[in-house]
């Protein structure tokens, strides 16, 4: 179990600043998720920690040791890539054992460690296949096996599940969480996926334009987002955000989540015309047109089905409004 500490980390590609002064502490054994819009620098930050990119300035410490200039293999990390990056010409066994064989470990030891890792991931019966003879989920497991066998201090994942279908993704999510619990290792995980971030993370780091917007537990980010950006990014459907003056508030931005709006005819705060209705079963998502504000999304009970064009009254739940200065 190791901590990862980034101080004032910067990275530019030529004239483009991609990472702009990141300070971050990841505690030993923590499952830390990086989220943010596409192109915000999540992968770059992960690759800086891995040592695949060189920092322009700032330092990276793993387990208290400055590794800013260390070779990737000397950092005690393992990485799982989005497209698995399995060596196509090697069998599953040799893929998992590649690092050990480079390190010239004895054959017997390699064999034992590879088989232990395969066992843990239910890959034993696939050990002599080539990657192209495996399904997506199996390939992903091999990639994880290749990471485990290195016995790293820190695991790095770059959108590892994004190539899997929805059902498999849900299953792998649980498996990864189990693995984290079992190994107790520090894990850093990049994703686009809200659900992955909310369900797996001990700590979420929201990145925007190469800077950290907010760091905190999933619930903290949901309940008390520090900025409209974070508020809009965490939670689905996304929070309704309006100019403060338009809703008669003194703050710069006013926000209210769709699930924190209730439909009411008793002195509603706003009235809107139903423009579109999405019935998801458990709930119904209603898109309304509110005069002066524009679009407003409300999450209502699954049995609500207001006709398009009808007029509804809406009020926020008390204490659930967000006001950003």
């Amino acid at each position: 179990m190791s901590s990862v500490v980034l101080s004032d980390l910067c990275k530019s590609f030529g004239a483009i600043d991609v990472i702009r002064g990141v300070d971050l502490v990841i505690e030993p054994g923590e499952f830390c998720v990086f989220v943010g819009p596409s192109g915000c620098g999540k992968s770059t930050l992960l690759r800086l920690i891995a040592g695949l990119e060189e920092a322009t300035s700032g330092t990276i410490r793993i387990d208290g040791k400055d590794v800013t200039d260390a070779e990737p293999s000397a950092r005690g990390i393992a990485m799982v890539f989005q497209n698995y990056a399995l060596y196509p010409h090697l069998t599953v066994r040799d893929n998992i054992g590649f690092g050990l064989s480079l390190a010239r470990r004895p054959k017997a030891e390699i064999r034992a460690r590879v088989e232990a890792a395969a066992e843990a991931l239910q890959l034993t019966h696939l050990l002599d296949r080539k990657p192209k003879e495996l399904s997506g989920g199996q390939r992903q497991r091999v990639a994880i096996g290749r990471a485990i066998v290195r016995d790293p201090k820190v695991f790095l994942f770059d959108e590892p599940l994004s190539n899997l279908d929805a059902a498999l993704r849900a299953q792998m999510r649980i498996e990864l969480s189990d693995l984290h619990r079992k190994l107790g290792a520090t894990m850093i995980y990049v994703t686009h996926d809200q659900v992955e971030a909310m369900t797996m993370a001990d700590k979420i780091v929201v990145l925007n334009g190469g800077r950290i917007e907010q760091v905190g537990s999933p619930i903290t980010l949901y309940d008390t987002p520090a900025s409209p950006f974070v508020a809009g990014f965490i939670g689905s459907p996304r929070m309704n955000l309006y100019d403060g003056r338009a809703v008669g508030e003194s703050c710069a931005t006013y926000g209210i989540r769709p699930e924190h709006l209730k439909l009411t005819d008793m002195a509603p705060r706003w009235r809107g015309t139903v423009r579109h209705v999405e019935r998801l079963g458990a709930d119904t998502v209603i898109h309304l047109d509110v005069p002066d504000l524009g679009d407003m999304v409300v999450r209502a009970d699954g049995d609500r089905n207001p006709p398009i064009g009808s007029m509804l009254g809406i009020s926020p739940l008390p204490g659930r409004e967000h006001r950003f200065p």
């Binding site: 800013t68 200039d69 070779e71």
Partner: peptide, 8 residues
């Protein structure tokens, strides 16, 4: 940054 790592 004094010690630049070598390119792969």
């Amino acid at each position: 940054m004094t010690t630049r790592r070598r390119s792969p």
